[in-house]
Each structure stands twice: as structure tokens, then as C-alpha cells.
């Protein structure tokens, strides 16, 4: 899709346009990252004194059970949220665009709200839903006669990850809805109308006609979703502080806890670098996987 060489702008023009954003971005994002990389080779307990200790932070990182447990939780989040956030958002957008649905503007406007609200409020609301005495969930289970299922939800280390993922999914569906909505706007209306959900096989049409047309945007959504969930922090912090124990600990929270809670800036920097590298690997891996899968499909 690159433009013809004949109308390609001069290098000078490209440089002039890119200079400011690129310089700004490199200064703000990469200089601190490189600084952190340097610090990660030091023992640094949060003061002016730093002692070079070679790779020992990294050796510790490789052996740190909590960090790898947290990494596992991030992978869980990524998978759950790609299906939950991007997947559900796509389905809801298809529904909103259907002729059978009324009040489209309301649905388009409201869905985005949860992602605008501070994490502390979201956390409070969901804590109330899960609360074992006053919570809606236990109240509902009791109402349908399944009191045996009632429990202290957020204290169950087996399912706590699922329980903190649900609010995260709910909160960001609207975010991806907005992105997908605008992508669909770029599709020709004729094509789109033929893919509307108006009957039994509407969803098939949506999947076979619309999805390929907005493939690029969906890939961007998936990338955003992976990136966002590899560094997830706020919501889980408000709801469980990573507990019980480390059952809902995620990498960014662990890095924060080590840096600020334990004043261990050197190891904290090492964790940041670790998060960055792992995220890169996961994103790279997912891109390769997606390319592989879609190539298969196109060939078939």
C-alpha cells in the first residue's frame, strides 16, 4: 500500500515532519529506559549510593518465583482480555450497527464510560459485588438457592485471577468498541450493509465479510490489548494488592512493590527491564502467530 515512488516526498520533508515527535519520544521514553537498564546492574537501595554488582540482579530475577508467577498472571490476563475485551467489543459493535437495534447513539456513548473512571472507584464497585456479606454475587447465589457456593471471593487464591480479570474486561470493552466503530466507518457502506446482522447467519456474515476488512485495526487492537495487559497495575492493586499472598500479583505491581515498598531500586529497575523484554517477546510472538494463522487462511 505504499505510495508510488513518483509521488514520494523528499527525505528533507519526511525528516522535517518526523523530527519533533521522534526526538521527544526518544528523550522521554528511551532515555529513562536506558537509565533503568544501567541501574539494573547496580545494587541500589534507594539513595545516592549505587554499587555495581554485575548480573546478580538478573540472576536473582531468573530465580525469583514471585516474578515468574506474576508473569504467568500477565499471560493469563492477555489471553482473557484478547478474547474478552477485543472479542466482545467486536460482537457488540456488530450488534450496535445492526438495523434491529435502537438507541444506537446511547450504546455508542455509554460503553466508553468505564474506561474514563478512576481505578479506585472501579475497584470499590467490584469489591462490593464480590463482598461476602453485602455483595451482589453472594446475594444472587442465595436467591437461586445455591448458598453452598457463597464464599469470600477475593480470598480464594484459585480463582482470584479470574475475579480481577472480569472488571478489567468490562472496563475496557468500550475502549475497543470505539476503535472498532471508527474502523468500520472506513468501510464502504455498500459492503457493510450486506454484512449486517439481520438474520440467523448474521454473525457468519460479520465474521467473513467485516472482519477481513478491518483486519488491520483488529491487529492493532490485539497489540494494544497485549501491551496494556503486560503492564496492568491499577485495578488489581486497588482490589487485592496482589493478594491473597501473591495470588493476583502481576509484574508491574511487583516491580512497584520492590522499588517503592522495599526501597530496592536496583532490582526494581531490573524488573522493569525484564517486563519490557518479556512484553517485547510476547508481542513479537503473537505477531508471528497471527501472521502464520492468517497466511494459512489466505492460502486455503
Amino acid at each position: 500500500m505504499h505510495m508510488l515512488n513518483a509521488i514520494r516526498p523528499k527525505n528533507r520533508t519526511i525528516i522535517a515532519y518526523l523530527a519533533i515527535p521522534v526526538v521527544m519520544f526518544v528523550f522521554t521514553v528511551f532515555v529513562p529506559l536506558v537509565t533503568a537498564l544501567v541501574y539494573s546492574f547496580f545494587e541500589w537501595k534507594g539513595g545516592p549510593v549505587k554499587t555495581f554488582n554485575g548480573l546478580s540482579n538478573y540472576i536473582q530475577l531468573f530465580q525469583d518465583g514471585t516474578f515468574w508467577e506474576a508473569f504467568g498472571h500477565n499471560i493469563y490476563l492477555v489471553i482473557a482480555c484478547i478474547i474478552g475485551q477485543v472479542g466482545i467489543a467486536f460482537v457488540l459493535v456488530m450488534m450496535v450497527n445492526s438495523k434491529l437495534v435502537f438507541c444506537k447513539t446511547i450504546h455508542r456513548t455509554f460503553g466508553f464510560f468505564p474506561s474514563t473512571i478512576a481505578a479506585v472507584c472501579i475497584g470499590l464497585i467490584w469489591n462490593m459485588i464480590y463482598h461476602n456479606k453485602y455483595g451482589i454475587l453472594n446475594w444472587f447465589l442465595e436467591a437461586i438457592g445455591r448458598k453452598d457456593l457463597c464464599q469470600v471471593w477475593l480470598n480464594n487464591s484459585d480463582i482470584v485471577m479470574l475475579l480481577v480479570t472480569i472488571p478489567l474486561i468490562w472496563q475496557y470493552i468500550g475502549y475497543y468498541m470505539v476503535i472498532i466503530l471508527s474502523a468500520i466507518a472506513s468501510i464502504s457502506t455498500d459492503i457493510f450493509e450486506s454484512s449486517e446482522i439481520d438474520g440467523a447467519n448474521g454473525f457468519q456474515k460479520a465474521v467473513y465479510i467485516t472482519l477481513p476488512l478491518i483486519k488491520n485495526t483488529m491487529l492493532v487492537c490485539i497489540t494494544l490489548c497485549i501491551a496494556g495487559n503486560m503492564k496492568a497495575f491499577d485495578n488489581i492493586y486497588v482490589m487485592t494488592k496482589g493478594g491473597p499472598g501473591t495470588s493476583s500479583m502481576v509484574m508491574a505491581m511487583y516491580g512497584y512493590q520492590v522499588s517503592f515498598g522495599q526501597s530496592n531500586m536496583g532490582y526494581g529497575s531490573c524488573i522493569s527491564v525484564g517486563i519490557f523484554v518479556l512484553s517485547l517477546l510476547v508481542i513479537g510472538g503473537s505477531q508471528m502467530l497471527i501472521n502464520y494463522v492468517t497466511r494459512e487462511k489466505e492460502a486455503a
Binding site: 501491551a227 522499588s259 526494581g268
Partner: peptide, 18 residues
């Protein structure tokens, strides 16, 4: 793309120092 992967919560101190 890398910019989206920066875990800002654990990078606050390097950013402040820079």
C-alpha cells in the same frame, strides 16, 4: 511499538532522575 510496553510504574525513579 516499544513505547507501549514501558512499565511506567516501575520506571518512575529513572524518569524523575532524567
Amino acid at each position: 511499538l516499544m513505547g507501549m510496553l514501558i512499565p511506567i510504574h516501575s520506571l518512575l525513579v529513572p524518569i524523575y532522575i532524567v
